[in-house]
Every structure is written in C-alpha cells, then in structure tokens.
C-alpha cells in the first residue's frame, strides 16, 4: 500500500487542529499515513495520532530548538525511507515554509493552501486558489511525490482510528535555528485557523475603538480578530491580522465584517467563509453584496448590543 507522510504540528501536548484535519484528509485518501512530529513534547503527542488516522508515527529527536531547514531534511528523509507518494501538512506559517523546502529537496512541484485533494490510481489532483481566491486552479501534480499544504477549516479530522506504531529518529539538523519564541501575550487564536473571525475596518474611526471588535470576539470564546488593509496600513492593527489579498485568506464558519466597505482585495480574502455577516452604516457598501446577513447601522451602537446577545446565546 502506498504511503503518505503528514507533518503534524503540536503545542501544549496536543496536535494542532489544522494538523488533525490534514491527517483526516490523508486518511480519507486511502493511503497508509505516516505522521512526523518534532520538537519538545513530540513523544507525548505521538501516541495520540493513531486515533486521528496515522498508521505510524515518526518522532524526530534532538530537535527541541527548531530548525526549519533541518525539519525539512527530516521530513524529506521520512518521505524517501517510506517510499511515500505524497507529503502533506497544514497551511500554517510553519507548514508553508516546510512545504517549499521539502519540495525543493525532493525536486517536486509544491501546491500551497489546497482546498481539495484527490488521489486516484497513483495520480494526485489538487484545487488551490490563486489571486487570493479570485480564481481556483485544478492541477495534476505530475511530480514523483505530491507536496501540498491543506487549508485549515476545510477538511474533516478523522476519529476512531487504531493505535499507531511509534518509532524515533535523530534529526539531521540544519543551518537555521530558532533561538527564541516570544509567545503571544494572550491565548488569542490565529485568524487563519479560527472557526469564527470578527474583522474591523476604517468604519471604527480609530484604533482604540477596536476594543468593540475584541469584545465581540471574546464573547464567542473561539473567535479571532481580523482587520482590513486600511487599518493595518494606518498602524491600528498588526499585519498578522490582515485579511485580504496582501494579508491572509480565511475560511471560517462565521465571518463578521464590521465597518469594512468590501474592497475587492478584501473580499478575495474572506469570500469562502461559510456565513458572512456585515455591519456597516452605508447600505450601498459592496460588503453587503457578499454578506449572508447584514445590519445597516452604526458599529458603535450595534456591536455592544450584539456582544451582549452573543454572551446570552452562548451562556
């Protein structure tokens, strides 16, 4: 049976949800799944991956100080040793970085941020957005090893698998080393991975008013804060929160656009959200054309009321 290698990210002793979704997609392809985990805590995560679809787990040791190129060498080695036909990981910051490096080492074409992935008699076909989602390409891999990252919130995680065989291997090491990580000051979710995103735009008038957006996100408990390009350019919010063609492309279950007019480059970054809610004073704003539900009104009045209502609904 052909093998597929999946790189699994983890934090605080658990695999990232986006990695579990990738394992699920790999498992669903019918190939035998080999998971690779690395870094501090990898050995604790390894035995949990069988339930999510891994047949085998390779724990890379000696890599507590993460090296991105070292990790790529470790993954490429696992691909070669298992004669794998495909390599997948989640389309996170680390995942995209790893994809390109592994594809380079294996001399294969990389496919980032795939929204569909099919395996049929040894041929792999993926679908991936271009121009930040203004169009979607369907591409046949054509390389000896399909190398791809899968978009978070798009594939289903598997459950009820069996126990995986766990082996370990020492890292090959690399030239580049992470020497420090300044963790985020709070446990806020990343905008790309969060199931709910509350984004604010210029309609909020000034940076401090983003508190209203943060409050609504906090009321959900599982929401991330996003921002339009205009407010990131104005320095109100960090670039890591920017949604759109020169920021991040997101596909949450629920997306709120607050005080965002809906420039084409913003719409490109969020139009694949399952449900879109727009709150804007201007009834003619283009954002209402893509929104499932709209409220025409002043964000300063609507947001506090909505935050209270969500708190009640979630209580």
């Amino acid at each position: 049976m052909s093998t597929i290698v999946v790189f699994v990210e983890h934090k605080a002793g658990a695999a990232r949800r986006a990695s579990l979704e990738t394992l699920g997609a790999a498992h669903a392809s019918g190939l035998s799944v080999v998971a690779v985990v690395t870094g501090a805590g990898a050995a604790e995560v390894a035995p949990t991956l069988g339930a999510s679809g891994a047949k085998k787990v390779v724990v890379v040791t000696g890599a507590d100080n993460f090296s991105p190129d070292g990790c790529a060498r470790d993954v490429a080695q696992a691909v070669q040793q298992h004669g794998a036909k495909a390599f997948l990981c989640a389309n996170t910051s680390a995942g995209k970085d790893l994809l390109a490096r592994v594809a380079g080492l294996l001399d294969c074409v990389p496919f980032a941020d795939c929204v569909d992935f099919k395996h049929d008699a040894g041929a792999f076909t993926v679908r991936r957005p271009v121009l930040a989602g203004k169009a979607t390409l369907t591409v046949q891999s054509g390389s000896p090893v399909l190398c791809a990252t899968l978009r978070p919130n798009t594939f289903a995680a598997a459950s009820g698998g069996g126990a995986a065989e766990v082996t370990s291997v020492a890292t090959l090491g690399g030239k580049v080393t992470v020497t420090a990580i300044a963790a985020k000051s709070d446990a806020r979710l990343d905008v790309k991975e969060a199931p709910i995103v509350v984004s604010g735009g210029r309609g909020l008038r000034e940076a401090t008013n983003f508190k209203l957006v943060e409050d609504l996100a906090a009321a959900f408990g599982n929401a991330a804060v996003g921002a339009s390009r205009a407010v990131v350019d104005a320095g109100w919010r960090p670039h890591s929160e920017q949604v759109g063609q020169t920021g991040k492309t997101v596909s949450p279950q629920l997306y709120f656009a607050v005080g965002i007019s809906g420039a084409i480059q913003h719409l490109a970054g969020m139009r694949t959200a399952k449900v879109i809610v727009a709150i804007n004073k201007d009834a003619a704003a283009p954002i209402f054309k893509v929104a499932d539900y709209g409220i025409v009104g002043d964000a300063f009045e609507v947001l506090p009321a909505l935050t209270e209502a969500i708190k009640k609904a979630r209580a």
Binding site: V130, A135, T136, T138, Q140, T272, A291, Y293, G294, V302
Partner: peptide, 21 residues
C-alpha cells in the same frame, strides 16, 4: 504539473439585510 482547469468562485447566494441598527 498540469493545469486541468481554472474556475471562478461560485457566486454567493443572495444575502439579506436583517434590519437597521
């Protein structure tokens, strides 16, 4: 790699304004 096709995202189904304020 071989491109098999390119498509535009399906238009989102018509939404509605639920109200004002």
């Amino acid at each position: 790699s071989l491109v098999l096709g390119i498509e535009l995202p399906p238009p989102r189904k018509e939404g509605r304004i639920v109200g004002e304020g």
